[in-house]
Design a protein around this nucleic acid. Structure first.
Length: 385
DNA sequence: CCATCCCGCCAACCT
DNA sequence: AGGTTGGCGGGATGG
């Protein structure tokens, strides 16, 4: 867009129009989706994806991990993932919910350590090996406490992203809260009292996760009703991008993007300072050995969380994505996520777009659209210069 | 100034 | 050894 050719050709030119938005995980994920969200996709190679999307492999891992947590992908083998598609999301969410609720049974039972975890139970674990040192007064939040005795000593295993994502999702799916603020979820996803350092890192991850989940339209980044605090609103399945299965009009040779549409992220390093003036003390200060504990508690109480706003944000439907039978969003108290119709919805949504070109075109406006939506839905005045 | 979060070093884990 | 995965946090960018 605003890129000048000179910037592209001559990277050494001064202020190249670098924009992190062009390299964001969210965008990358969107690209990833447009590239692989078709029925004829079976397995995805990480290298392939990385090169096609024009990003370093590291980034693919980020995306893939959270996508897998939601069921869109499944690890097949080294370097290979199989595409499950959005149709698999409902099921994954359902499982997460059950899992979250189950591990939550008598979570209020504080003491009783011994985990009488019955058989089965696949992987996935976390443990809470500490009792918050202070703040003995924990309010009455009964909710999900995901805890499992992990490995003995060093459990290098599953650390963050995947697990964090699952827990993050459980937060929504297991409670009736639809809006959770950033730091709230951060506190929930790990103990409460935590030295800034840990929290800091955790929040970074949260942002990462949120970006790709946003891209999936499972959540939306907003701001708490009246607060300025950033928050995430659970959308569940709703404006889910269609999937080309059985699309009659899909051109056979629609392999590559159409002309203008370029899914590749052009690389524009973010001018790394190459100063060699470093004293040499750039030793890695490892600092605290972070305790791996995941302890989440939900704030089931939702008395006033979602105050009904005059202009109900739900009334704005997602343009072309608008599901025919959606539009409730009424603030019914116990209008918890209704899992039953997810399946139905997923199939109902199927043939949304019959035109590949339209799809590609629309893709380009996704970002713009997002801000627009944010502006209208969230009453936050946002000015586009 | 501070919220957001990209980048990539480098450590665990596999082959 | 060499290749994969993916924590983790510095520090740049955006508001």
């Amino acid at each position: 867009m605003a890129l000048s050719y000179s910037d592209i050709i001559n990277p050494s030119s001064k202020h190249h129009t670098y924009s992190r938005k062009q390299k964001s995980l969210g965008l990358l994920c969107t690209n990833f989706l447009t590239l692989y969200n078709r029925d004829d996709i079976d397995v995805i190679g990480l290298d392939e994806a990385a090169s096609k999307l024009g990003v370093e492999r590291r980034r693919i891992y980020d995306i893939v991990n959270v996508l897998e947590s939601v069921g869109v992908l499944a690890r097949k083998a080294k370097n290979k993932y199989s595409w499950k598609g959005f149709a698999a999301v409902p099921k994954a969410l359902q499982e997460l919910k059950e899992e979250g609720l189950r591990d939550n049974v008598n979570a209020i039972d504080k003491q009783s350590n011994n985990s009488a975890k019955v058989v089965d139970d696949d992987e996935d674990e976390d443990d809470d090996s500490d009792s918050n040192p202070n703040t003995g007064s924990q309010n009455e939040n009964y909710g999900i406490i995901k805890s499992t005795a992990a490995s003995r000593a060093d459990h290098r295993r599953e650390k963050s992203l995947g697990l964090l994502t699952r827990n993050f999702v459980k937060l929504f799916v297991c409670s009736n809260a639809n809006l959770i603020s950033l730091d709230e979820s951060a506190k929930l996803l790990l103990g409460d009292g935590h030295n800034s350092s840990i929290m800091r890192t955790k929040v970074r991850r949260l942002y990462d996760i949120a970006n790709v989940l946003s891209s999936l339209k499972l959540i939306e980044k907003t701001h708490a009703a009246d607060t300025r605090k950033p928050a995430f609103r659970w959308l569940g399945l709703r404006g889910k991008p269609e999937n080309g299965s059985g699309d009659p009009l899909a051109p056979l040779e629609s392999r590559k993007r159409t002309f203008g549409a370029d899914v590749t992220n052009i690389s524009f390093k973010r001018s790394k300072l190459d100063s060699s003036v470093d004293g040499g003390k750039s030793q890695s200060l490892k600092m605290q050995k972070q305790i791996k504990d995941e302890k989440i508690v939900t704030v089931a109480e939702r008395g006033n969380v979602d105050q009904d706003s005059q202009q109900n944000s739900g009334s704005f439907q997602f343009g072309p994505f608008a599901p025919v039978s959606m539009a409730k969003v009424g603030n019914s108290e116990e209008e918890v996520t209704q899992i039953y119709d997810w399946e139905a919805l997923s199939s109902t949504f199927r043939p949304q777009y019959h035109n590949q070109a339209l799809r590609d075109l629309f893709f380009h406006y996704t970002e713009a659209w997002k801000s627009w939506y944010t502006e209208v839905a969230g009453k936050k005045p946002l000015h586009i210069s």
